[in-house]
Design a protein around this nucleic acid. Structure first.
Length: 282
DNA sequence: AAGCGCCTCAACCGCTGGTAT
DNA sequence: CATACCAGCGGTTGAGGCGCT
């Protein structure tokens, strides 16, 4: 009987729990409580604050939305490049990737990957973790992002800065690397054949960025460890000098010029071919 | 104007690893 | 050790917005 009474009480508590979108009042209550008592200990916070939410729900709402340093709005091209790079290194370790992008949450990055990157993979009928897809990103997507970065910083743009692509990217990565000095998970990672980070320093060997970009500021420097994969200029040239990716996709039954693929906003094929010819690729 | 389908993103769910008892 | 509890993570879902017909 006692047990059934306890069950009833638990059911009552469960029934009282709110789910779904947060109201303004709930947000205010949570922010006020955390301002006074600090974050953490989410279950007791949920009970003490008077919110009819689980601790998990409170934590998620705070970390993903209410926390003052959470950035809202679209990811910048620099941030997208960072995500592509870090995902190539760590896979779906969203929280780990998010730690390198100040103000961005794991949820946001995960959503970005699923809605933007995986969509491209789906259209190409290829797994997003497939090596060929990574190669396709490197060949087509990265140059577009770099172009965007440059466009945003060109003298004709609204800003007066003359910062180059390489500097921009480097600043972004340097920015993210600052906290690593003492506690970076990157520095602790062991080196694998696909590693883009060195365990001995904070320098980055990017599988995406041309070495010319990486070395222009002296930041991306091979630390001499032969296990570190260096995607160097000759690799880039090699990729650019043949059409392996395109050919392979065609052989695999993916028509890159089909409407289905060409209609994708991110990879407008006309622009893509224009870009390729402009840059004497192939 | 209405219906439909697609896309985005906030939020939930289940699982795992760490810590306290 | 065994158990319970909790925080955090990654996968998934679904409401709402938007564009197209």
């Amino acid at each position: 009987m006692g047990a059934s009474k306890k069950m009833t009480n638990e059911k009552l508590v469960l029934d009282e729990l709110r789910k779904g979108p947060w109201t303004l009042d709930e947000d205010n209550l949570l922010v006020h409580y955390i301002t006074c008592h600090g974050e953490g200990r989410w279950n007791s916070l949920a009970k003490s604050s008077g919110l009819k939410r689980t601790g998990k729900s409170c934590r998620l709402r705070w970390l993903n939305y209410l926390k003052p340093d959470v950035k809202h709005g679209n990811l910048t091209p620099q941030e997208q490049i960072m995500i592509l790079e870090l995902h190539s290194k760590w896979g779906n370790r969203w929280s780990k990737i998010a730690q390198q992008l100040p103000g961005r949450t794991d949820n946001e990055i995960k959503n970005y990957w699923r809605t933007k990157v995986q969509k491209q993979a789906r259209h190409l009928k290829i797994d997003s973790n497939n090596k060929k897809f990574v190669e396709a990103l490197r060949q087509f997507w990265l140059p577009r992002l770099l172009e965007k970065v440059d466009k945003n910083n060109s003298p004709s743009s609204s800003t007066t800065t003359t910062t180059s692509t390489s500097t921009m990217i480097t600043n972004q990565i340097n920015l993210c690397s600052k906290p690593r000095v003492k506690e970076s998970p990157i520095m602790e990672t062991t080196i694998s054949s696909s590693s883009i980070y060195s365990s001995n320093d904070t320098r980055i060997m990017s599988p995406y960025l041309p070495e010319s970009v990486q070395q222009s500021n002296g930041y991306f420097v091979d630390n001499g460890n032969s296990d570190v994969t260096s995607f160097n200029q000759s690799n880039i040239q090699e990729l650019r000098s043949n059409d392996t990716t395109m050919l392979d996709f065609q052989l695999a039954g993916v028509d890159w010029m089909s409407n289905e693929v060409a209609d994708i906003s991110f990879w407008n094929m006309d622009e893509l071919w224009q870009f390729r010819s402009n840059n004497e690729i192939c």
